[in-house]
Nucleic acid binder design. Sequence first.
DNA 1: TGCACTAACGCAACAGCGTTGCTTAAGTGG
DNA 2: CCACTTAAGCAACGCTGTTGCGTTAGTGCA
Lengths: 392, 392
Amino acid sequence: MVNSSSGPASAAGRPFASRPGRPGGNLPALRSHNTALVLGLLRSAGPGGISRRELAGATGLTPQAVSKITARLRDEGLAAEAGRRASTGGKPPTLLRLVPEAAHAVGLHLDRDELTAVLVDLAGTPVAARSAPLDLGAGPAEVTNALVTAVTEMVTAVGPGTATGVEARAALVRGGRVLGVGVAMPGPLDHTAGVPHRVTGYPEWDGFPLRATLTERLGLPVVLDKDTNAAALGLALRGGAADSFAYLHLGTGLGAGLVLDGVLHRGARTGAGEFGHQTVQLDGPRCSCGGRGCLEALCLGAVARGDRAGAARVLGAGAANLVSLLDIDRVLLGGRVVAADAGTFVRGVAAVLDDRARRSGAAPVPVALADEAPHPVAEGAAQLILAPVFGQ
Amino acid sequence: MVNSSSGPASAAGRPFASRPGRPGGNLPALRSHNTALVLGLLRSAGPGGISRRELAGATGLTPQAVSKITARLRDEGLAAEAGRRASTGGKPPTLLRLVPEAAHAVGLHLDRDELTAVLVDLAGTPVAARSAPLDLGAGPAEVTNALVTAVTEMVTAVGPGTATGVEARAALVRGGRVLGVGVAMPGPLDHTAGVPHRVTGYPEWDGFPLRATLTERLGLPVVLDKDTNAAALGLALRGGAADSFAYLHLGTGLGAGLVLDGVLHRGARTGAGEFGHQTVQLDGPRCSCGGRGCLEALCLGAVARGDRAGAARVLGAGAANLVSLLDIDRVLLGGRVVAADAGTFVRGVAAVLDDRARRSGAAPVPVALADEAPHPVAEGAAQLILAPVFGQ
DNA sequence: TGCACTAACGCAACAGCGTTGCTTAAGTGG
DNA sequence: CCACTTAAGCAACGCTGTTGCGTTAGTGCA
């Protein structure tokens, strides 16, 4: 049983709540909370494993409580022994590890012209992936069909032949359930309702009940979120727990995914992260959004002129604003435009941030290229389903 | 007992954790969490009270659990019966209310030239207040003495004579303990360590262990935070739970207090809310911070020229950036400069936000003047102590 | 080789949390 | 007057993590 008492993405922010909007806690909620905590530590420990003692230290639970929890996880097939570590003068610690094959999740990335689907295991490792052309403009009905087909193929008949395919199939046969489907697409959208708003250029998507439709047709839990949020969630997984960062994505447009204190920040109407139309030049050039001096317009304008260093400086100004306002640990850059000249962008943004830090006397905030997995957004989308399992 | 298992400001963000950094939960933590939840509902219900049934509905706990919790609270003197409501066809509900006199907290506001001290009860209502001139430049040692004196007088001998004074004294005599002292001062500072950084113009404060010194000399828990954060916390209390807003303060400088999903956002190094030096004009005029086109410089510059409408527009641009990025519910304005011409500022900022909302198709974000209590920052500072009692 | 020591961990009994099932209290309405 | 409704308490209960103590499996030294 993996947090069966709470649906996907429900417990975020209020760890002990048994149901969203019902902040009260009871024993099942307590158990679920602690189990998720232990699972999360097992995941971050990796295949090498972690001892019960260390789990107790990290959680604050007694060793005995950890023993009970891990025993349950082993019974359920979610954890297993992973040998022992060298003794330090007493009985050597028995290591425990996550059993990644115990459960899976599907991640879908709807880009403007491509659909990417991945199947990841409990540890977040991709087990299968496929991409296909997609025309968002073809409308919700047709695209939904394509999504259903992609998920069905991915889950039921992961192509035998490749090594990963065989492994995935075997895992599924062995009983590794598919917990749900995470869907990432360009914003803005309503994460809670699972409904896209007006995606730039595709008015027919505005208000289409994508999550409800997919849930019904797939018979699986479905979670919808912005592509930048999915990417940030994926990065949060790799970057260690409980820190704060902003993922800035410069591609067709400019967007941000914010992870504050280890939790993805979605905002009151789940519209947070609209970074492209931040005003940084009050009387600047007109932007397509109708405003003036928007980050996105200035950045992409500079890129179009071939002035990538200038674009980096502008992006840096936006990043500095964000860092000052939110006091985050680090800034990660990604997206097609950044990838084309990573060094320039990382250095340019870092220069602005370092300058700001020097003036304010604070420690400089590190900037780095988001180390992209093969399908960063699709893998992050799968994390939309997996995150609640680990108490995120 | 009021959350005795967790110190002030500890449980924020991780409701079930018994100790900070130890995210595991146990039965005492569960109990503390639910108790805090019920206390919070009692507080927001006000003196009119709330029935057990309603408490059960709001928390998700069973009526029986609520009965047990409220019985405990009544034994401890924190809750009391408040009559009954009219029947709706059955037994009329018995109403419960918070007993505000059961506990108190002290709030201190260190402004550049004035010290304000308030004593508030459990409901956050000021019971006593006093102000005195203060020279922050006199240095930490002298100021600390003044703070100790102010707190001691406020706690032990609230002047008899005025009605509020008598009431306060009586309450303290009846056993209403003082839970601690919240201290608000201009940032930047380290909330966790309780140490001011370089307060503009007063370098001698940089690194002074203010919290540790006060804790030792007063024998009470002390919490230190930025004045804008304290103000935001006070507003969060009045504005209802679990929403998101930004409090923008335009006075000597420009700062912000951010409440996201009902929780004060302090950031990784507790430095969040540095709003004044957001760049909104890339090649704008030099700011005292060394940057260019900072919000604060532009805003105060416009005010100095007598162009308050212009200042409001600039502030509005900053607010719009913030709203887009964080997706908050509302924007509150305060501070001496705003108060001098509230209408102009509220209308000016609202105009920019409405314009933004119209372009993006989203609902407009309301802007309002922060309804200021007599001593908003000092009362908010007291909330630094009270918030953890109510699970915030 | 043997013994003392240490560290990791399990077993069993336990205290305390919210839940369940049922009863009592106190109103309304025909 | 009685059936009905709603609020709330009592008692037993299941399940949580905790405590106390014993077992296992190593190290270190004589």
